[in-house]
Amino acid sequence: MSEKVKFTIDGKEYEGAKGQLLVDAAAENGVYIPVLCHWKDVIPAGSCRICTVKVNGRFVAACTTPVEDACVVENNTPELQDIRKAIVEMLFVEGNHFCPACEKSGDCDLQALGYRYQMMVPRFPYAFERRELDATSPKIFLEKNRCIFCKRCVRMIKNDKGQSYFAFKGRGKHLEISMDKKLAATMSDELAEKAMKVCPVGAILRKEVGFSTPIGQRKYDNVPIGSDIEKLHK
């Protein structure tokens, strides 16, 4: 049993295990900190920045920061809420997202966060960058227009030799998600399913199967994202 630590989030006191990531410790206590790149027990990427919180007055990502004894965390402040909303808006203007036509609609974390933060019109100008759709794999489509660069697929979808199916290409404004064509040709159905599942948006979609769960019955169709965590507390 690891050492227990006490900390506060928005003034309320909670308990967690020393060294545990703040985002996980908060969730166990029923406090939702939004995430897009984080996946429990996978090495954090810390790239989407939507879990930005203030710890002892400093801005940090809750998915890369271990919880320390007596740390003071700010989470649901107007400042942080606005930053998170801005990040959602930014992801919408950066890529090309057409929710009504997307197979991931209702299961999409980005869409769900858009609702949660009541995004109406993004404050930023649209980029309208043209990106490719890679359909070379027999199992999946890689729809680069929808990628938000969370690196979940890069970190989690590997073969038994530890080789990556997915990787970043380029940098900065030229950054894109890419697929190893040789490996993708041999991808199993199970791995394709996993890849689609871990993708928080509709960038990785399985071929030949779709809409098995009807619109209206999907994850976020009736409850906002984060409500599963927040329910724990009630």
Partner: peptide, 21 residues
């Protein structure tokens, strides 16, 4: 900065482009 951002963080990747524009 737009050219040299590694692109990993959402904010640095996009804001540099937006601010440049």
């Amino acid at each position: 900065f737009e050219d040299e951002s590694c692109g990993s963080c959402v904010t640095c990747r996009s804001f540099n482009m937006i601010l440049r524009k």
